[in-house]
Amino acid sequence: MGLKRFLQLLGLLAGFWFQAQTLHLYGGADQDQYLGCLNCDNFDKNSIWNKFSDYGNVFSSKSIWNPYGNYGSTYSAYSPWNSYASYPPAILDQDGNFFGFLTLNPYKSDRSELELAVILCKHHEEIKSDVGGWYERLFR
Rank of each mutant, 00 (worst) to 15 (best):
N39T: 03
A90I: 00
N39S: 08
F139P: 05
G56T: 10
W65F: 03
S47M: 03
V131N: 10
S53P: 01
S79Y: 09
W17A: 15
K62Q: 08
K128L: 10
L102R: 06
L25E: 03
D44Q: 04
Q21F: 10
N105M: 05
A20W: 06
L120G: 09
Y26V: 08
E125D: 15
C121S: 06
Y107A: 02
P106D: 04
G36I: 08
A77W: 13
F6Q: 01
L23D: 05
T22R: 15
K122D: 00
S109I: 06
W49N: 07
I91N: 08
G28T: 03
L104D: 03
E136A: 14
N82W: 11
S83C: 11
P67Q: 05
S76Q: 09
L13T: 11
Y68T: 13
Y75V: 02
N39G: 04
R140L: 15
N50R: 07
K128Q: 12
F6R: 03
K62A: 04
R111L: 03
R5S: 08
D93M: 06
S61C: 10
C37F: 01
Y34T: 06
W65H: 02
Q8H: 13
Y75R: 00
D54C: 06
G36M: 10
L92S: 10
I127S: 08
G69S: 10
S79D: 09
G100M: 04
N39E: 04
S79N: 08
D30L: 12
T74K: 15
E125F: 14
H24F: 13
A77R: 15
N57E: 12
A117F: 10
Q21P: 00
P80N: 12
L116N: 07
P67T: 01
Q19C: 06
C121Y: 04
D32P: 00
G27K: 13
Q33E: 12
G11R: 12
G133F: 11
N46D: 12
L102E: 00
Q8E: 14
Q21I: 11
G100V: 04
L23A: 10
N46A: 09
F99Y: 12
S63Q: 14
S61L: 14
N42M: 12
P89R: 08
K62P: 01
A20D: 01
A29S: 11
